[in-house]
Design a binder for these strands. Structure first.
Length: 658
DNA sequence: GCCCCGGTTGGGTCT
DNA sequence: GAGACCCAACCGGGG
């Protein structure tokens, strides 16, 4: 970070400042924005760099893009309200190349932005900072995304990732008090001349991991730096070639602050909130306040949230709930995951080479680029059955209505309740399909409007019992857990409409519905869900697996994996000899040597030239192939996503032909 | 090193 | 319907 030398205000060369908006799309409580205004700039350029990484490589479905666009429009109109000459300047180019050119063109003296500890953001920002400093520009970076600066938290945790609430709370205490929110600025300086005389760097659009969500031509970089209207306007989904968003949830700081008002005006709700007691089956309205996407985009400050809740607690006469289940507890968990990610970097988002992620020989393991040590976005199909489980899980046609309703709500609305996420994540990994948590994390990354890399990765590790949590014998039932919350199955009737007239007695287990009742409900329980109708009769699939049997298979597998005590960075995981440590040599669950990182190396060597000397070179003898997940770029927010080869469709076709 | 306890959110059975 | 207890047994943290 650059030394923070402030120029004196009587300097005739008053600061010319770029304020770079990122995951801080708000004007309230923004330490970085205050730092920019404290410079008393003569001109202030509020910019957003339309980063091709976000457009093509990160997996962002149309719902999250829409939420981002909402946030950008809202912040832009707030800027205009403070100064009619101001607005958000959205510039279509990667920041690494764009910002150095802007510095020159606009004679910039200071670059100011909020710290981002995500793995990609760190590498991107390093390049930008270096280029800016080389150009003689002061770079000012302020922490503002979390309760405490995540790097400070890590430092106070002995340089280690925060892997428990105890560690986070102890480290946070040492860092100091949670900062009080800063007020929204009352005025803004003018922007300078926005003329751009340089050429636009057109990014490489391939691989395009959002391509499955596009219906029209992707035109993000087609109209030059300032967009189709030459006005630096916020892009539209049409410009991105994306399908229309289906989420009912709206982005923007105004929306976020209004939700916060509603929540904190209800002192009883705010003070006695206990997450495990909120229902995952509630909809319209849901049982929680849906601030998570606003925290992700920064349209809501987490410290504003903290202190507004504290104010309610201060005035509350009854017995308030406590962390970790209280509202404060939820915010603390977020900081815990940020503290884990800040310490571990790219490796946090994958099993391979992750010192804090337990090795389990899951099905469909990620492929690894041995040069970088990072996962590539492709995965190994070690088992055809597991691949089918995964596809049916992702598409919401497992034959378990509770799971399918949640997965369909996720796809439509971009949000499901935390406990719903627990249900589907447990089912995919340790409590059903025995598929790698990295596959599930990638699907969530695509579909969630509140996708926060640190929290998503952390929660998937939690649920799969590979980090943070280890009681794998506590397993969610795809039938009983939903029933506990919603006896009548109204949630299922809403999101799996083909079952809407099935009697409550069978709604969680429709395969038990007598034929006469199926006829009355105008649905037939048949097939695998790939066909919606048989003539005029709606179809809903039979369950794709015997849950009670699979639960035992998974628990036995987890026990074996815990017994061998391997982590992602263990020698045996990295050199592929891990399978020797399992009684069945990994033959049982993993179908032999094809599973796990060791199994991926053989395939990978072909691509990277590491032909010889690598142990455990393994081909796929029965013709299974490596595939890239649909719309996936890998890495659960972690990997570099540079390699993209086969397609899922290809693999499905191959499977059908066999 | 050992023991004990607690761990945001399990399920099933019994009283 | 709520609460106690068991199931089989994980980890980390504190004494």
């Amino acid at each position: 970070m650059a030394p923070r030398k402030f120029l004196s205000s009587n300097n005739s060369n008053a600061p010319r400042v770029i304020y770079w908006f990122r995951t801080d799309l708000r004007l309230h409580d923004s330490p970085a924005l205050h730092a920019a205004l404290d410079l008393k700039p003569s001109v202030l350029y509020p910019i957003w760099t339309w980063d091709p990484h976000y457009v093509y490589r990160a997996r962002v479905g149309q719902n999250r893009f829409q939420f981002l666009i909402d946030c950008q429009n809202d912040v832009s109109s707030s800027l205009t309200k403070l100064n009619p000459k101001q607005k958000l300047l959205v510039i279509r180019e990667a920041p690494q190349t764009l910002i150095p050119k802007l510095i020159k063109e606009w004679r910039i003296t200071h670059l100011v932005f909020e710290k981002d500890t995500d793995a990609y953001a760190r590498s991107r920002d390093k390049e930008v900072i270096n280029a800016a400093e080389e150009a003689g520009v002061k770079v000012i970076i302020k922490s503002g995304r979390t309760l405490w600066d995540s790097d400070e938290v890590v430092k106070q945790n002995g340089g280690k990732p925060t892997m428990s609430m105890t560690q986070l709370e102890a480290a946070g205490k040492k860092v100091g008090d949670i900062a009080n929110p800063l007020p929204t600025p009352k005025k803004l300086p003018d922007p300078g001349d926005t003329k751009l005389s340089f050429d636009q760097n057109i990014p490489v659009s391939s691989p395009d991991f959002s391509k499955d969500y596009r219906e029209g031509e992707e035109k993000s970089y087609k109209y030059g730096l300032s967009g189709p209207n030459k006005d630096f306007g916020v892009p539209t989904l049409e410009e991105l070639g994306l399908q229309k968003a289906t989420t009912p949830h709206k982005g923007g700081e105004s929306q976020a602050l209004s939700i916060l008002d509603t929540v904190t005006n209800d002192a009883q709700y705010t003070a006695t909130f206990e997450k495990p007691k909120t229902s995952p089956a509630a909809f319209d309205p849901q049982s929680t306040c849906l601030t998570s996407p606003h925290l992700h985009f920064g349209s809501l400050s987490v410290r504003e949230f903290w202190w507004r809740v504290q104010k309610v607690l201060d005035g509350y006469k009854g017995t308030p709930s406590q962390p970790p289940t209280s509202l404060h507890g939820q915010l603390l968990f977020r900081d815990m995951y940020f503290g884990a990610q800040a310490a571990l970097g790219w490796q946090f988002g994958q099993t391979y080479d992750n010192s804090h992620c337990r090795f389990v020989p899951w099905h469909l393991p990620s492929k690894v680029d041995l040069k970088t040590g990072l996962i590539t976005g492709e995965y190994e199909v070690d088992d055809k059955q597991a691949e089918e489980y995964f596809i049916r899980w992702r598409e919401g046609r497992t034959g378990f209505p509770w799971i399918d309703a949640l997965m369909r709500q996720l796809r439509q609305e971009g949000w499901i309740h935390h406990l719903g996420r627990h249900s589907v994540a447990c089912f995919l990994t340790r409590g059903g399909c025995y598929v790698s948590w990295e596959r599930g994390a990638e699907v969530f990354e695509e579909l969630l409007i509140d996708h926060e890399a640190a929290c998503n990765i952390g929660n998937w590790q939690w649920l799969s019992c590979t980090a943070f949590f280890s009681q794998f014998y506590r397993c969610y039932s795809p039938v009983a857990f939903g029933q506990k919350w919603d006896k009548e199955g109204n949630f299922i009737r809403r999101y799996v409409p083909e079952l809407k007239d099935v009697p409550a007695k069978y709604i969680y287990e429709p395969w038990k519905t007598p034929i006469a009742d199926q006829k009355k409900a105008k649905v037939q329980i048949k097939g695998d869900g790939s066909t919606e109708k048989d003539g005029d009769v709606k179809l809903y699939p039979k369950p794709m697996l015997d849950f009670n049997h699979q639960r035992q298979v998974c628990i036995d597998g987890m026990k074996a994996a815990y017994d061998v005590k391997l982590y992602g960075n263990s020698k045996e995981v990295k050199d592929g000899t891990w399978s020797k440590l399992f009684d069945d040599h990994g033959e049982g669950l993993t179908q032999g040597t094809k599973g796990g990182p060791g199994g991926t190396m053989g395939e990978h060597e072909d691509a990277t030239g590491h032909e010889e000397g690598e142990p455990h070179s393994t081909k796929t003898p029965n013709g299974n192939s490596s595939v890239k997940a649909k719309g996936s770029g890998g890495a659960a927010g972690g990997g570099k996503r540079e390699q993209g080869q086969g397609t899922l469709d290809g693999s499905v076709k191959r499977m059908k032909n066999e």
